[in-house]
Simulated scan of single mutants.
Amino acid sequence: MLLPTTLILLASLVQAATLTLKNSRFNITSKDATELRAEPLSVTEKLSSPLKLDRTDILRLTFQVVEKDNGNNVQPHQAFLRFYDETTDEEGIQPVRVSNTGKGKFELNMAKPPTSLPPTGSAPLRVSLLIGSFVHSPLKVELFDLHVPASHPPAQHTEEASYHPLPPLGHTFRPEQKLPPRIISASFTGLALAPWLVPLVLWGKVAPSTPRLFSPHILPFVTTLALFEGLLFWYWIDLRLGQVLLYGGILALPTVFAGKHALASIGERRLGLARK
Rank of each mutant, 00 (worst) to 15 (best):
L146Y: 01
V148G: 00
V148P: 00
V148Q: 01
V148Y: 00
P149R: 01
A150I: 13
S151P: 01
H152G: 10
H152Q: 14
P153N: 12
P154H: 08
P154R: 14
A155T: 12
H157Y: 03
T158S: 12
T158N: 06
T158G: 01
T158H: 11
E159F: 07
E159N: 12
E159T: 09
A161R: 06
A161N: 10
S162F: 11
S162E: 13
Y163D: 11
Y163P: 00
L166K: 14
L166G: 02
P167A: 05
P167E: 04
P167Q: 04
P168D: 07
P168H: 02
P168M: 04
P168W: 00
L169N: 08
L169K: 05
L169H: 03
G170I: 03
G170Q: 12
H171N: 05
H171Y: 12
H171C: 02
T172Y: 04
T172W: 02
T172M: 05
F173N: 02
P175S: 12
P175L: 11
P175A: 13
E176S: 12
E176N: 13
Q177D: 12
Q177I: 12
K178T: 11
L179V: 04
P180S: 08
P180V: 10
P181F: 08
R182S: 15
I183C: 05
I183W: 10
I183Y: 04
I183S: 14
S185D: 13
S185Q: 14
A186P: 00
A186E: 08
S187W: 06
S187K: 10
F188G: 02
F188N: 09
T189R: 02
T189F: 11
L191F: 13
A192E: 06
L193I: 14
L193P: 01
A194W: 15
A194D: 12
A194V: 13
P195V: 04
L197R: 06
P199E: 06
L200D: 05
V201S: 06
V201M: 09
V201G: 13
V201E: 03
W203S: 04
W203I: 04
W203C: 02
G204W: 11
K205I: 09
K205N: 05
P208I: 05
S209P: 01
S209N: 08
T210E: 09
T210I: 08
P211N: 02
P211T: 03
